[in-house]
Design a protein around this nucleic acid. Structure first.
Lengths: 206, 206
DNA sequence: AGTCAAATCGACTATATAGTCAATACGAGA
DNA sequence: TCTCGTATTGACTATATAGTCGATTTGACT
């Protein structure tokens, strides 16, 4: 008899499971920040996560699956960084500027995050694709408003991404001059042929 | 006695040795174009080069040493691409434009080369440092002539390199619009705040 | 304290990779 | 054809890594 509540059991399990899984993903983030996926071993992950090998395979089928989980977590940090922009900014160029600054400032404040971003930017991952898609959306909108000198949106996206990634690399190597973020942003806007965001009726943020 | 000419013997050996070594470096270039050094195995190299494992270790102490040799070869292709510029162009911005165009056109024509360049641009290798140093030299000279809106040479270098690398990535993914190279170059010059090279007395190329 | 399903553990087998070395092949000159 | 210094070979050992699975622990609930 003893009709135990199985659903409850499962719920408890899910919580414990989530904690351990998070440990493994944390370790994965740390390690993927310093070496590419192909060079990362399961043994290294389980040692860093302080977990047995079997536990890894209980949570993930392969390293690729872990990498996907790390990518998802990274995507969440992006969403967190950009949340204010989505709410209040209607101007596509203002959004672009805000995101660019946020990303560079985050990179300055959190080198592990920066390294992870750069590693992820290498391979065409799901995460990289999403960033690019959002960027292209803003650029297309700005272009439609006649605010850009460039009309090849793909090229424009490559220019923004390229400068972003390379400046982030520079930050990791200690090239952090005064006003770096503002200067880099100004260069991006010049490259795009976009005037710095001016106050227009109801277009900029609050 | 039979006083055999030992120097001659060594010379013969050196020739055979050089052939085999070149085979291994070729294989290394091919493989390093598709995966990072940390993910490359000696077995994979010797299989691709069609030599025995012992032969690899007879020529190189480690994979790192092979990577260095590949880097050197890559550097030679750079020199070859830029040779015309060194001879005739006194204008630093003209040199920069020429190099930028050469590199992108080479990337379009030779995807393996492009992949290898991008992989090498990742880690701060000796090769990457040299490209950066040359670029900074030209940018410093241009800045001294008052031809640049930017005065942070490191940032300027990051902008040029970033756009170059990202556009090259785009090329590898099939984003090769018409006039891509010219448009990308124009964007770089706008970002730097440099007017397109105009004919000045004795400053441009022949 | 006892129960039990879920989660965790770590020893174990398979395979892959690094690095070594004695044996062999090569080839120009004697 | 034979010699001999040099280059090449591939089998071999040792180590690292992937992936499995039965044993063990955990913790809410009874």
């Amino acid at each position: 008899m003893a009709k135990i509540d199985l659903a409850r059991r499962a719920e408890i399990g899910r919580q414990r499971r989530a904690r351990t899984r998070a440990q493994i993903v944390d370790a994965g983030m740390m390690l993927l920040a310093e070496r590419p996926l192909e060079a990362l071993t399961v043994d290294a992950v389980v040692e860093a996560a302080e977990v047995a090998k079997g536990t890894f395979y209980y949570h993930f089928q392969s390293m690729e699956e872990l990498a996907a989980a790390v990518g998802e977590r990274l995507g969440e940090t992006f969403d967190g960084l950009l949340a204010p922009a989505r709410l209040s900014m209607r101007d596509p160029i203002a959004r672009l500027c805000f995101a660019f600054k946020q990303f560079l400032e985050k990179a300055i404040a959190d080198p592990v995050w920066a390294r992870l971003v750069i590693q992820s930017a290498q391979a065409p991952s799901e995460f990289a694709g999403e960033v690019r898609a959002n960027l292209k959306r803003d650029l297309t909108e700005a272009s439609a408003q006649g605010r850009l000198m460039m009309h090849d949106v793909d090229l424009a996206a490559d220019i923004v991404l390229g400068i972003w990634v390379q400046v982030t690399r520079g930050i990791l190597q200690g090239r952090t001059a005064a006003d770096l973020v503002e200067r880099a942003l100004a260069a991006v806007l010049r490259a795009l042929g976009a005037a710095p965001v001016r106050q227009r009726k109801g277009n900029t943020n609050s």
